[in-house]
Amino acid sequence: MPGFVETFFNLEIMRAALPYLLQGLGTTLLLVLLVVPLGIAGGLAVALLYRSPRRRVRWPLILYVDFFRAFPPLVLLIFLYAGLPFAGIEIGAFTAVAIGFFLNNSAYYGEVLRAGIESVPRGQWEAARSTGLSAPRAMLWVVLPQAVRNVLPDLVGNTLEVVKLTSLASVVALPELLFAARQAQSLTYNPSPIVLAAIIYLVLLWPFVRLLSRLEHRMLVSR
């Protein structure tokens, strides 16, 4: 049996696979740039609509959020990618990922932002309105900044999850980082490309994990 290093950290194979993996990384980053803003926008819509005094508006929103908290995103993705074509709707891997993630992430961001907005005392809103600020301005300039600050760890944490979630796109053959690594592995019969992909994820995400730890810790101490 070949040695451990030769098997898992085969530099030759890693070097050969690197360009391919970097291409995959490019796709991953592109996905992130697409699904994070979309998810935040959707989540903001959920959180703002939730302020409605009408229960007929709030109930469906809770249902929507809880549905996607209960539903595995991979199942949603497979449904869109492999199920819809039976109805004559071919949307392709990229669109399936975009739609699936939008639905899923809007729910999660929505829950975070809703909690953030609710954490801002009502007096802030009233003070802003009493100085003549319109409702959208009061929301944008007074309430939202405080809301974001109050739930910053959850926002960062959720974004980290979203980035990690993009690895699911490999299942529907979207050539992002993990997909590229598995392709390279099956071509070389060597796991080094997967190890390299894991290392790339670590290098990319570890600083955010550290940041998150710091933020969470600060919230605990400041309380």
Partner: peptide
């Protein structure tokens, strides 16, 4: 840190 940074699917694979 390791298992918060790695996507679960990557660990499974």
């Amino acid at each position: 840190d390791l298992f918060r940074a790695l996507p679960p699917l990557v660990v499974i694979v």
